[in-house]
């Protein structure tokens, strides 16, 4: 019996923030943490985000895999080297990279309960994300003007689909950022839960950022080092 009790005790060992952190996006299912044991030392919502990002890896993996499957198999139409403008794309890539910094600062301020600063950094992140999407829209219209459409060639189809879905993920991120900033302003978020919410949002944002670095390296830069 004594052994068993010890084990039972073990199950309850929460690390610092674990206990009150199990809520957020799917907010606050009351006192579920009664049975939320934190065996993994992670709050529910964070664990969920990790699982979701794993799933997203397969998603982008498949899209990028499709791009490579079809690389150089286009039968005609503008080729990457004809239309890519690395300078412009580098600017937008830089913006996205910087947005990860502001995102990290937002998480930091959320942890320290500097909600005003946090809101500012969140909005800055959102602005950079929106700018990135703007650049992408510009780039797309530029390419279309040069004769590359979704239906032009395999390159057109794979390029627009892959980068388009990345852009859609950035857009969702922007909406999410704005939404959290808004909810925080209105006081609709439980103050104890803001930190974890912002942290999880940051995970998503960094992930989307990393995906872009992969796409940028393998799609844009690779075409130029050939």
């Amino acid at each position: 019996m004594s052994e068993a009790v010890a084990i039972a005790h073990d199950g309850h060992s929460h690390d610092g923030h674990g206990h009150d952190a199990g809520h957020g996006h799917d907010a606050g299912h009351g006192h579920h943490q009664l049975t939320e044991n934190n065996f993994l030392g992670l709050p529910n919502i964070k664990l969920a985000m990790w699982a979701f990002l794993g799933s997203e890896c397969m998603f982008f993996g498949s899209l990028i895999g499709t791009y490579f499957f079809y690389r150089e198999m286009s039968l005609g139409g503008p080729m990457p080297e004809d239309i890519f403008d690395v300078n412009i794309t580098s600017i937008s890539t830089f913006l996205l990279l910087m947005s990860s910094v502001t995102m990290a600062l937002a998480v930091d301020n959320a942890r320290q309960r500097n909600f005003g600063k946090m809101r500012a950094f969140i909005l800055a992140t959102a602005a950079q994300g929106a700018a990135f999407v703007g650049f992408q829209i510009y780039e797309f219209s530029h390419f279309v003007a040069h004769g590359l459409k979704l239906s032009t060639s395999l390159f057109g189809s794979t390029f627009y689909t892959m980068t388009g879905f990345h852009g859609a993920h950035v857009s969702v991120g922007v909406i999410w950022l704005v939404m959290v900033a808004l909810l925080a302003t209105q006081g609709k978020l439980n103050k104890d839960k803001i930190a974890i919410n912002v942290e999880v949002m940051g995970l998503y944002w960094h992930f989307v950022d990393i995906v872009w670095i992969i796409i940028f390296t393998f799609v844009y830069l690779l075409e130029f080092t050939r």
């Binding site: 397969m58 498949s62 499709t66 198999m73 239906s151 189809s157 627009y160 689909t161």
Partner: peptide, 26 residues
């Protein structure tokens, strides 16, 4: 996710005229 991507490509082919499964386009 992989089949979701496969379905998206199919949907794009059927809806927006992309050429993922179009053998005449390679």
């Amino acid at each position: 996710p992989p089949v979701t991507v496969g379905l998206i490509l199919l949907a794009f082919d059927r809806t927006f005229g992309s050429v993922f499964y179009e053998t005449s386009m390679g």
